[in-house]
Amino acid sequence: MIGRLVALAQRGDRRAADRLVREHDGWVRSAIYAVIGRPDLVDDVAQQVWLRVWERLDTLQSPARLRPWLYTIARHTALDVGASHGRRSGRTTSLENVSAVDERSERHPAQAASRREQREVLLAAVQALPADYREPLVLRHLQDWSYAEIAQVLNVSVETVETRLVRGRALLRELLQDRVSS
């Protein structure tokens, strides 16, 4: 099925290309976010990823390997953009986004502020994880993928994914404990 879709897209079928984007854009965005950690840059990077995909689609020999191939492009593009913009180390967000969130929870501003602060601490801890642990963890949460699906995209074994998730969670807990104690 996916092989036929890729073959059609490679031959220039516009509908197949559209479908390919629609079916894969969601997880590609999650992958970009997992790498770059900047939601404000995800749209821009996703556009660049799809441009690169169309430029290189002919080089994809095995359509069954579409997902890992897309992930590699998404990862490299995100890293390129991350290098120029700086991966998020300290948490930043636009005022527009903050006000949109605040409007929803205006009735209890203190609670909302506390929740936002808590979320910022959690996100900062996730961003502080090494890429090997952060990427499967983010994909697991955002895409609800199985270990096998994550393993296929990351091009590692299922056991490796499982170990990285367990270690990532343990490391996350340690990071949060350090922050709380400091």
Binding site: Y33, D43, T93, A100, L122, L123, H141, L176
Partner: peptide, 24 residues
């Protein structure tokens, strides 16, 4: 505690990614 932290991380990540898309 393990499950609560995992759930909190998941919802924080989803909210962060959704928040960027919402204004668009």
């Amino acid at each position: 505690a393990y499950a609560a932290l995992d759930e909190a991380v998941g919802s924080a990540l989803r909210a962060d990614l959704d928040r960027a898309a919402a204004p668009v």
